[in-house]
Each structure stands twice: as C-alpha cells, then as structure tokens.
Design a protein around this nucleic acid. Structure first.
Length: 538
DNA sequence: GAGCCGTTGTCATT
DNA sequence: AATGACAACGGCTC
C-alpha cells in the first residue's frame, strides 16, 4: 500500500457513492484518498441584498438541499472508513493548495459541461499537470458524452429532439453493472495545515432570518434520492405509462412527476442508473415512448446539455445564434409583480408562491408562468425570468433552465407563439375548485370557486364575504389577458418577420427601432383596457 | 420549394 | 373524449 497513489476526489456535483467513476478511479490502488468539497463563499454566504433569502447565487432552499446532500455524503463516506473534507475558499486556489500540501499525484473529478466549470476545470487541470499530477475527469453526469454527439453531427449540436435521438443511439454503458456496492475506501491521509470543516448548517453559514412557515418538503442527499427512486419504481404501471404532458400541475400533496430532478441536478442520483432502472421496468411490458415517456425525460436532459455545450452564449439572447432577437419590454415593474406573486392572476401567483416556498413547481406550472412573463402576457425578457428560476429552484440546472426559457419564450426550439397558456382556464381544467390556489394564496381561501380564478369579477358583496377585497387584500390584475395576449401575438409576429428579413442578424439598432414602433402601436390598446377596467373598478 | 413534423393552447362543437 | 378552427411558426428531409 505504501507505494500506492495519493488521490484527491473533488466533489462538485456527483454527490453520491453509487455509479461514480471518478470516485472509483480515485480509490483504486490508492494509499490515501482525500474526498474534498470546497465551499465557495460566493455561492454559500448570505446576501442581504438579494430578492429572497439566500446567497448572491442561490436561494435558501437550494443551499439547504446542498448542505443536506453533503451531510449524507459525509455519513456514507464514514461508513466506508473515510469522510468528507470540507474546505472554504476559491475552488481553484483551494484545490491547488491541497494538491501541494498533501503530495497528491492523482486528481479525480467528474467532467462538467457548464461554462463555469469549463473555465474553472481548464485552469485546475493545467496547474495540476504542470505540477505532475495526473487528472481523471470522466463523463458521468449525463447519459452520453455531449462532445461526442456534437462531433458526430459535424461539429454542431443537433437542434431537434428527434435528430438528437438518432445521433445518440444507445449509451455505451447500457448493459454494464453501474451500481457495484463499495465495501471500503482507502484512508484519509494527514491533512497538514489545511483547515478542515464539518459540513456546516445554514445557521453556521449565517443564514438565520429565513421564513419558517413553509419550506421545501424535499430533503437533499443520495439516500433520499435513492429512496425516492425506489418509491417511483415500486409503481411499475405508473413508470411504464408515464406521459409527461398528462400530469396535473396543481397536484402538490402528491406531485404528478417524480421530483427526482433536484437529485439529478446535484448528482445525488446517477442519471445512468436511473436510465437502467427504467429500462428494467420496460422489459416485456407495454410502455410509453420518448419524448413523453419517463426515459424520454432523461433524453431531454441530455439533449439540452448537448445544445447548451455546443452553442456560444446559450444563456443570452445577444450573440446566441439559435435565439430569436425579440424587443422585450425594458420595464422592471411587471417583472417584479410576477416575481413577487402580485400579478393579480391567482393561478400565476399561487405558482410563484410555491416556487418561492418549495423551490419546486410542476413542469406545466413552469410553462404557465414562463409563458405569462414572456410571450404570453407581460412581454418581459426571458433572461429575467430565467434568473428568478435559477435562484429559487432547488433543481435549477444551467442547461435545462436556459433551454426551457428559450423554448417557452419562443426564442428557440419552439416557435408557435400563437399557443398561449391562459392564466385562467389552464389551471381550472385540472383544479376547478381552486384547492391549489387556496393553499398557496390563503388570502383567497374563502373565495367561491366561481370566482377564484378571476376574483376581479366577483361582486363586491362576494369579496366582502370572502374577506378578500380586490385591490386591497389581493392585487388587481397587472394586465388584461385578452388584450395583452393579443398584443404579444402581434409583437411576436413582427419580431419574427424582422428576424426572417435580416436572416437572424438583428442589430441593437434594429431592435430598438422595432421596440419603439411596437410601443407606439400597442401601448394605447393596453392603456384603453386599463382605463376601462378602472371604470369597472376591477 | 414543398411537405411533414413538432413533448404538453384555447375555445366551440360534437 | 375527440375534432376542427384559429392562424400559421421553423427545422429538416426530399
């Protein structure tokens, strides 16, 4: 053993023991194994200036989910004779310092295709290699290697799901045994002068003033993720017949989807292991197929990872070659109303409350509020909505979040901007009584079901009896959906025409001009509607 | 250049 | 529950 390697396993995602190739490699023929997680203060320290409790980058629910995942990882490592070494500081400097301090000759971490990690890992790898440290960075976060798919497609990512499926074919590891139990790990060596922490609590990080009335019901960690997976798999009929668009977005006591996304996001659950489990259920049973099936959802994830990696400025409108250039509103007033659940549309506001409290909302609920903010009603820039989701979601994932905002705003992938979700009727068809609204917007809990989706239409007597006066206890609508959505359709039409005319090469100047034109044309319409509504005092 | 396809719209009608 | 009108998009294949 004395001649074995000194290995450092750097955890970022892949917060798991099962199907973790980097961890397996790091523990093979090692005298000592140092399992490390670096807490970046920018990600974890409180930021009182942010619009919700949490750090400058993440809301409180996701920080908590991460801490729970780290605790669980630490206890799993301890069962195998090891432990998690938590350090604080700039990730690259901290890792480089550890390599020197501990005489590491092998550095292992999971490949990550996000831009943040692409540049961080480049730096760390080059410093490691100049110090003579071997690095091992396997692809294990996704089913496929996104770089290989892009290469196979001639250097550009496939832009449709079907072309992605054709290119991807079957994963190389499909019939390998991925979840081999580990019985023990090499010991952790001397840590020298490096300051090692236990996994901190939220309070130890300085987060103390977060609301306690209702937080996310989802606990982080590999153990929780595997337990949840087991629960999902125990209902084989449900797994086999799953069809994504058929789920009920208003179900919250028992969500209509798996809620495995936060576990996949942090790598508490291996997407590859999940894939194999689903395939096991599919064997000899009639089952749904991609894109709507459960397996299809994992393929969507890989699809977005691939497009995101192969598209410069994927997370922006400007300089993004697959993104339609659209003259979104520049006012922040409507954005804030949406973000703070004050649009006056109970279905939209209830979803935004659930997002803030739980850090998780159903996929179709995400569609409703994203469509409403952008092309459906408010015409606010998708990047601003993206930022809100990125902060508040416990499962927020760079590629998926940006990809879905591009999709829902009809900026890329999906272009049928006439299909707009109604902020009234969409929710009503699943939950006619408005139980979802009553739970997340208790101010409306006594509103009769006839009015709960459109409380501004309730007679004053009804509002009084329900102890909810519109304009006082609950806000008036920020826009009238009928006219606002019609304006949005026309604006999208004009923006699309401009993009087509200029072959996508729309300059800042072109966009400003169009914005000015559209404002002149449509401001009057919405103003008229607003004053009409004021006369009706709704 | 035409034709087909696209994970998940709404509303009215049957 | 299923259908068609609404009004009609871009990407891909041929």
């Amino acid at each position: 053993m004395a001649s074995g390697s000194y290995s450092l396993m750097w955890f970022r995602k892949a917060l798991r023991i099962h199907d973790n190739p980097a961890l397996e490699h790091a523990s093979r023929a090692s005298s000592f194994l140092y399992p490390v997680f670096v807490i970046d203060p920018r990600y974890m320290d409180p930021d009182p200036g942010a619009f919700s409790p949490g750090s400058s980058r993440a809301g409180i629910n996701r920080i908590r989910f991460l801490l729970e995942s780290l605790s669980d990882l630490d206890s799993s490592l301890k069962k195998l004779g090891s432990r998690l070494l938590v350090l604080k500081g700039d990730p690259d400097q901290t890792i480089i310092r550890c390599l020197k301090e501990w005489n590491i000759n092998r550095l292992c971490f999971e490949y990550d295709s996000e831009p943040y990690y692409q540049s961080l890992d480049e730096k760390v790898k080059s410093l490691a290699s100049s110090a003579g440290v071997e690095t091992f960075c396997p692809v294990s976060h996704t089913l496929f290697n996104p770089l290989e798919i892009i290469k196979k497609n001639g250097g550009r990512p496939p832009l449709t799901y079907q072309s992605f499926i054709k290119l991807a074919e079957k994963p190389s590891w499909e019939s390998s045994e991925l979840n081999i139990p580990i019985s023990s790990l090499p010991p952790v060596g001397d840590v020298g002068s490096c300051k090692i922490f236990d996994v901190p609590t939220l309070r130890e990080l300085g987060h103390s003033d977060f609301e306690l009335d209702e937080n996310t019901p989802f606990r982080g960690g590999e153990s929780e993720g595997l337990k949840r997976l087991k629960d999902v798999l125990s209902n084989q009929d449900w797994v086999a017949n799953f069809e994504k668009p058929k789920g009920d977005p208003s179900a919250f006591h028992k969500p209509a989807t798996t809620v495995l996304s936060p576990y996949l996001k942090f790598g508490c659950l291996s997407s590859r292991y999940f894939y194999q489990c689903i395939n096991d259920v599919y064997k000899d049973v009639k089952h749904s197929v991609p894109p709507v099936s459960l397996l299809g959802q994992l393929l969507w994830r890989d699809f977005f990872y691939t497009v995101a990696l192969g598209t410069p400025n994927f997370d922006k409108m400007k300089g993004n070659r697959i993104c339609k250039q659209i003259p979104w509103n520049e006012s922040d007033e409507l954005l804030v109303a949406w973000r703070e659940a004050r649009t006056g549309y109970p279905w939209i506001d209830a979803i935004m409350v659930q997002l803030r409290k739980w850090g998780w909302i159903h996929h179709l609920a995400r569609h409703c509020v994203a469509c409403f903010l952008t092309r459906g009603d408010l015409f606010v820039h998708w990047e601003k909505g993206r930022d809100v989701f990125e902060r508040l979601l416990i499962d927020s994932d760079w590629a998926l979040n940006n990809g879905n905002w591009l999709w829902l705003s009809c900026s890329s992938f999906f272009y049928q901007y006439n299909r707009i979700y109604s902020p009234v009727s969409f929710g009503k068809k699943y939950d006619p009584n408005g139980n979802y609204i009553r739970h997340f917007l208790p101010v409306l809990k006594d509103m009769p079901k006839e009015y709960i989706y459109e409380p501004w239409t309730a007679p004053l007597g009804v509002q009084t009896k329900a102890k909810c006066i519109i304009g006082k206890d609950y806000p008036k609508r920020v826009v009238c959906h009928d006219s606002a959505s019609k304006d949005c359709r026309r604006k999208m039409g004009e923006a699309y025409a401009l993009n087509q005319r200029l072959h996508g090469l729309v300059s800042e100047h072109d966009l400003t001009n169009l914005r000015r034109n559209l404002e002149e044309k449509y401001q009057t319409a919405e103003m008229n509607c607003r004053s009409k509504r004021q006369k009706r005092s709704c």
